[in-house]
């Protein structure tokens, strides 16, 4: 068995167990009318971390491949908001959603979802009160943006962060008609803080 297969199968099992825990918590919520949103969020975050670890490992080994799946981008952002909103609210951070990409686009849906979840969590760590997730379509293609009202990136490009490195390489792997995607990091958000923008052709 290859090291990658071993790792992947371990992660697969762990995620199945997380799912069992998630279903029990959801059932308890429904049965007792209580809010265990933070427990659910912890499970989602753990799964997200496992995905990211596997993706980072694949990238190191140059074995990462993207899988193009027609995906409605507004829907994808809605799901990221669903995963994150509760947790952000618990820390008194508001998550704004401003989506204008109702078309299906050929993207790697799961990787993109993980990257956006990660970006929103990063932004929330530095935000004072607000994080905004927005998306749209223009002549260049598709853009997805996560902004916050915090102090902004200390360095651009930032010196560390597997999440950001992965996001950049994910963007570059989306290619079409001779053009490729890219990650833009800046401190010019209208909210006053950092701006993380994925541009995909």
């Amino acid at each position: 068995m290859k090291a990658l297969d071993l790792l992947a199968s371990g992660i697969h099992d762990a995620k199945n167990q997380l799912f069992s825990a998630e279903s029990l918590i959801a059932a308890a919520e429904a049965q007792h009318g209580i809010d265990l949103g933070e427990a659910l969020f912890a499970i989602q975050s753990a799964a997200g971390r496992l995905n990211q670890t596997l993706a980072a490992y694949r990238q190191l080994r140059h074995e990462i491949r993207i899988a193009l799946i027609p995906t409605v981008i507004d829907d994808l952002c809605e799901e990221v908001a669903l995963d994150q909103r509760h947790h952000l609210a618990a820390g008194n951070i508001r998550l704004e959603l401003d989506c204008h990409a109702p078309d299906a686009w050929p993207v790697d849906r799961e990787l993109l979802t993980d990257m956006l979840n990660n970006a929103v969590q990063n932004a929330a760590r530095h935000a004072r009160s607000c994080v905004r997730l927005s998306c749209g379509e223009d002549a260049e293609g598709l853009w997805l943006c996560v902004e916050d009202d915090g102090p902004g990136f200390a360095h651009i490009p930032p010196s560390s962060g597997t999440g950001l490195l992965l996001a950049a390489s994910l963007a570059e792997m989306h290619k079409r008609h001779g053009r490729q995607g890219r990650l833009e990091l800046a401190n010019d958000s209208a909210l006053g803080g950092a701006r993380f923008t994925l541009r995909l052709p």
């Binding site: 992947a8 995620k15 799912f19 825990a21 491949r65 899988a67 799901e79 669903l82 995963d83 799961e110």
Partner: peptide
């Protein structure tokens, strides 16, 4: 599926399900 690699299958094949969802997922999702 718990396997993110199922995405590789869905992106390739002709006969696809209506959708796929990767574990763990919430009831809301």
């Amino acid at each position: 599926t718990g396997e993110q690699s199922y995405e590789q299958v869905v992106s390739a094949v002709e006969l696809v399900p209506d959708d796929y969802i990767i574990k763990p997922f919430s009831p809301d999702k």
